[in-house]
Structure formats: structure tokens, C-alpha cells
Design a binder for these strands. Sequence first.
DNA 1: GCTCCAGTCGAACAATCGTTCAGATAGACT
DNA 2: AGTCTATCTGAACGATTGTTCGACTGGAGC
Lengths: 195, 195
Amino acid sequence: MGNPNRDNEYLGKLQDYFSQYRSLPSYAVIGEMLGMASKSAVSALVKRLTLAGYIEMTPDRRLAPTKRFFERELADFPVPAGLPAAANDAMSDALTVDEYLIPRPSTTVLVRVKGDSMIEAGIHDGDIAVVEKRHAANLGDKVIAIVDGEYTLKTLAKDKLGFLLQPENAEYAPIRPREGLEIYGVMVGLIRKYR
Amino acid sequence: MGNPNRDNEYLGKLQDYFSQYRSLPSYAVIGEMLGMASKSAVSALVKRLTLAGYIEMTPDRRLAPTKRFFERELADFPVPAGLPAAANDAMSDALTVDEYLIPRPSTTVLVRVKGDSMIEAGIHDGDIAVVEKRHAANLGDKVIAIVDGEYTLKTLAKDKLGFLLQPENAEYAPIRPREGLEIYGVMVGLIRKYR
DNA sequence: GCTCCAGTCGAACAATCGTTCAGATAGACT
DNA sequence: AGTCTATCTGAACGATTGTTCGACTGGAGC
């Protein structure tokens, strides 16, 4: 062929564009962006990407990304620094971050973690906890519980006296609810961002 | 005025459309959708919504939703005091977890963490590291480096002898690269899922 | 060497784009 | 009542859209 397959690189630029503007550009602008001089080249590219399932046409013939457009490759080993094509081969799995973390959006809440009472479980101050709202939990689950009208993230435990909320930090004492234990939700994921 | 203000209703339909197609339609289709017979009415509406900050124009004059476009009435859920604010400010101005963690999709890779050499930094075996591919890093950054052809996640440090890769686990020894240090990428985020 | 052929170029095309403007409509105000 | 004023209509406009087609390019593979 005239060129090695650069569609992956092209797709990447489109993903960057969409993540910035939440909209896909026109063929002319795509061409400019990708260094193509003719719209017919873009047209062919769009056809290829559509076939591959990354983009689609709305009923009124506008470009729109599909779900696959947002998939990321999850590599067990990072790939040798080299061609983007190589990165494809080593892709062990593809997933969208949102779907991975939040399978049930309507009952899921994000809560910013405060304090270091859970630091030995690798949950730091400022992290974001992905919490699924429900009232039932298993022992060992990290739960958001309501104690004296306050919300607190602890590990659910139990001893001969009953349920208790266990911090993951030796400097903190377990909390034993005076009355029934009210659980707001169960922590199902963690998000952290380094700046 | 000729009509009560129906912009809210119009906005709602645009939101529905976007959530279905991930793209905003042309003026003609908007008019059809909203029951407007003339594109100039749509043009005026777009001007109003732009002014109100719900939509904007990309550099190539395409309609694109803004963050405010995705705001929802929060009247429905009187969430117990303390939490709702946390959920909202947790991701500040990002619409999705994906967007929050991955501003530049094409240079970002997800890598599954193996081993517990970084456990004191709250990075556990099985966690997913969000890695931005680049060769430059700052001291203190957690980097994926290439040492003897192997990829390893460590904290970048430096002493009088030069750069070294510092594990975050007292039981591991620092790695001092024999030759130049090659950096594959910088860890910018962390994702963990509890099952 | 030679042929393939996916990818790109360049130009021409009708269709659709969003803008503009003058005029009609109808609720809100005095 | 009459006047305002924001909204919508309808038509005309040049600009831009995406499609199409024939020709060119340069690795891959015989």
C-alpha cells in the first residue's frame, strides 16, 4: 500500500479533538488536522473508521463517535516504545473507564475522601471513592456509614459484641455504633489523580 | 414576548439528542425537532443558549455542548447533608470519569500494576495506572521506566550519584540504572476496583 | 524486474450549511 | 386601549458541506 496503516494515529487525533471540544470536526478540518490535502482521503478514512466501529453517522449525516471510540487499551505490559501499531498487538483488553468503574450510574455516587483514616488500605486524602448506594454490605467491605449524622468511610467488621467500623490506620480507634448501623453505600472503586 | 420562555424545554430536547448520538444536529434538524419552521428561529435560539453558556462553537463553527449543557436539575435528590457537595466538586468540571482522568487520550495508556513495590504510596497489586506517555518527568513523579528491557513503576528520585528509581516499599531496594534512564511515561492517575 | 492495491490527491458537483433581513405574532406592560 | 419586545416566519444569500471519479504514489509480494 502507499502508506503503512496510520489509522490508529488518525483515530488518536480525533479522540483528542473530541475530548477537547465534544464534537467531531468537518472533513476539511480533519484533513487539515491529519495532514491530508484532499477531502476524499478523509472520506475514505471515515469509511474505514466507520467500518471498524469507531464512528458512525447520525440520521442527519453528521459524524458521531460510538462507544468504542472511547475505549482504552489496557496493557499488562507497557509496550516497547515504538510504533503505535505495535501497541495494538499487545493490547490485552479494551474498556471504557466509565463503564469499568460505574456499571450502575443511577445508584453510584462519587465522594471525595477526607483524612487518612484509611491510608493503610491505600485510600488517601483527596482520593475519590466510587460508592454504590445500598444498605446491605458484607464484612470486609469498605462502606460509607452514617454515624451520629456524620458520613464516614470505614471497613465493615464484626466481633462478638456486634458490628463495628474499622479504620485502616493504627492510630485510629474502631467505631462502635451505639444503635443500629446505617449504611449509606458500599465503596466499589477508587479514583486518584496526580497533578 | 410572543411565547413564554421555552428555551428550557428546547435545551432538554437537545440534551436528549446529544445523549443519544453524542453529536448536535444541524439548524435545520433542530428546527424540525423543536417544531420551528425557520432556521432563523433556530439561529436565535442558538444565540440565546450560547449566551447562557450551554453550548458553544468549535473553531470550525460546529455546535458543541459545554459543561453546563450536562447540568441536571438537582431538585430531585435531596441527598443527606454532607454528601451532595462532595459528589459535585469531586470531579469539578469534568463530565465523566474518563474525561477527568484522561485529557489526552492518544498519549494515555492504562497499565495494570503488578507487585507491591509501591504499596506505601497506596498503589496496590492489580490497580490500574493511568500513564501519560512522555520521556520527561520531574523528581517525585511516579514513572514507568525501562530498565534492562523491563518495565517498572517507581518514583523518580535523585541523589549525588544521579537518578534512581525509588520503590515505595521498605522491603525493596532502589534501582540505580547502569546507563541512561529511559522513561516510558508518567503516572497521572490511578483506578482501583473492589469486587 | 513487475504487478497489485490501499491510500491519497485534485477537481467538479449538487446539497446543505448558517446568516441575514423585513415582516408577522402574541404575551406583558402601562 | 395601545405599545413593547422577544420570538418566530419566510425567503434569499454566499459559503461550506460530503460525495464522486479518474489519476498518481509507493510498499508488498510474486
